[in-house]
Design a protein around this nucleic acid. Structure first.
Lengths: 344, 344
DNA sequence: TTTAGCACTCGTTATTGCAGAGTGCTAACA
DNA sequence: TGTTAGCACTCTGCAATAACGAGTGCTAAA
């Protein structure tokens, strides 16, 4: 099952060629390449073997060969030379951070946009998981007698807000007192733990100072329980429409519907390891992704993994370039974010 | 140029039929309808006249007829009987407001979703123009020595926030003083006027109380100048993929790209009058919208127009149903919003 | 082991023929 | 004069056919 050098060479050229042209590669056209010095007949024999081993396939009996998923997998695992980004690409990426933007979300969003423009694939960026951010400040702004807005500011400068109603019998002074206590006690607590902490540590204290505290506390703590999951940002959602393999309305429909349905795609991306990961075709376990590959890279702040940045393209994707690009952007992104927020 | 009753009848049946089936309508199939009592030959004569007048067209020499844009226009202007929504539709719409949601944005977003599900067209909702909201509260939360977040809460409960940097030399106490003054003086001012008002009314006052006020004020007032335009919410972005007239990849690409590019679509929708408006095909002045119609309805709070709710579908759209639906939702929406925020 | 040669397969494209749907026109009818 | 029946004509859609090109698999010779 080990491939000979020549088989590897042929596989490499087939994949490269197919990625470039999207056309099945025939033995004759292969034999004309300069890196190949043997005849088309020899190539045909080798291709027959490669096909038997499952690395390439035919689209019909007498067609040229295209890489199978296994072929792409081999290509990605063994044949990808760490390609240098060209300098114009590097400049473009740098431009993401050129402007003085401070909001984490905006940086992330801009990355997604630029990434999709550079690759002409679809980019997907999973924003930082807000739930791990730590509470910096809780504020409550009353709107009228029985409505108010709770605002939460986190240490990364993320702002969440939620409107809520409370019983008219509640004393505004008490609300203020309560907010002060909550701030004092809960600053620095990760949002995900807020709810638990309120009851564990603060409730007793509140009971002493505030009458009717349970009425109000119930409302507020419920408000603070954030369902807020990671935000998903897209770039170039429609780029896949330009890929020749998606000339088929049905495929388009499947893919677009799946992209539109954010839960699906973010679930697909979330469960991915630190660093770069490549998932090819059915490795994604998703029917709509049959002809797609997903390359993800994580970015972090200091040591802590923050989010994920991904490229969705056809299986016939420029793996080499996309991987270099993602690697480059994600380390750059991590660097900037670490500088910006770590030394608070 | 006035149409006879019989011509009107035929036009009506053609449009109705074509909306239902998406197939050209022939004279023979028309003559079989019960509302029509004359022969196919007569119909052919009438159709020839209708075609000459520009209300219907052929797809090829010997095909049945389809409505032209002028035909749809006549249909919408003269032949649309104000149809009663059926009760299940009414129930579905009511469900938008059944849950206790208070955030304006959420209500609007949910409307878009439900609307697209009911019609299987694409719905677009232009959120309230935040710039006309009035300032309720300005707050500044420091993040570290030189970074802080400015948070603006409006009278409708909308929250805007922006991160900014300031010179390290600024005294935190001064910031607080300043925020107090700004709140005192600017509460109730529409966001769009904030910037001007700061310099007109507050600057002098600040000068007296705060040293270095100009340094800080410059930063803050710049931060308060909101580019924040109306938000656009979509429902069923991919629904158009299911319409038979969009079997063509190129058409899909045009339309999707245009939908994805939010500026375009919101510009298309914004310049629309109070009440219901129907724009058919090229009336939209947009190449990507050639085969589409856009129906918009405004919603308001009290007397003041807040935003727009729209349906984008093929020109062969169920005008009657969509119009009733939009009318119903927009008045309901207006009612709820007025109740919720007017009596503050 | 490599290669040249040849028969064979399949997709693509163009052509043809044919059925079905629909039209326009004419002549007859009420 | 308006309506209708009839007929020739047109166009689409589909299926069958043929020709071509690209590519393969196999065999036999180098």
């Amino acid at each position: 099952m080990l491939l000979t050098d020549r088989q590897v060479l042929i596989l490499q050229v087939i994949v490269d060629d197919f990625i470039r042209t999207a056309q099945p590669v025939g033995s004759r056209s292969l034999s004309k390449k300069e890196e190949i010095s043997f005849s088309s007949a020899t190539i045909r024999n080798e291709m027959a073997d490669l096909e038997e081993l499952g690395f390439i396939e035919k689209t019909h009996t007498s067609s040229g060969r295209i890489p199978s998923e296994k072929g792409y997998r081999y290509y990605v695992d063994h044949l990808l030379l760490p390609q240098q980004l060209d300098s114009s690409d590097i400049l473009t990426v740098k431009s993401i951070f050129a402007e003085r933007i401070y909001e984490l979300e905006k940086i992330v969003q801009k990355s997604a946009k630029i990434l999709s423009e550079m690759t002409s694939y679809t980019s997907i960026v999973l924003g930082p998981a807000v739930k791990d951010n730590k509470l910096r400040k809780l504020q409550i702004v009353p709107l009228n007698q029985d409505t108010a807005i709770a605002i939460i500011v986190t240490d990364t400068g993320h702002v969440e807000n939620r409107m809520f109603h409370f019983p008219a019998s509640v004393d505004p002074g008490d609300v203020e007192k309560m907010v002060n206590i909550l701030n004092e006690r809960l600053a620095g607590v990760p949002l995900v733990d807020l709810h638990a902490n309120i009851y564990k540590e603060v409730a007793a204290l509140l009971r002493q100072h505030i009458k009717n505290y349970d009425l109000l506390l119930g409302t507020i703590s419920e408000t603070l329980t954030m369902p807020a999951s990671e935000k998903v940002f897209f770039g170039g959602k429609t780029n896949m429409l330009n890929q020749p393999e998606f000339n088929d309305i049905d495929k388009i429909r499947n893919l677009m519907t799946m992209i539109e349905h954010e839960d699906g795609i973010s679930r697909l991306i979330r469960k991915n390891p630190k660093g770069i990961s490549v998932r090819i075709g059915r490795e994604n376990n998703n029917i709509a992704m049959e002809n797609c590959s997903l390359i993800t890279a994580s970015y972090s702040m200091g040591e802590e993994k923050l989010g994920t940045i991904a490229i969705l393209g056809p299986t016939r994707m420029e793996y080499s370039r996309v991987i270099s690009l993602l690697q480059f952007i994600s380390t750059d992104l991590s660097k900037v974010l670490t500088e910006l927020y770590q030394n608070k």
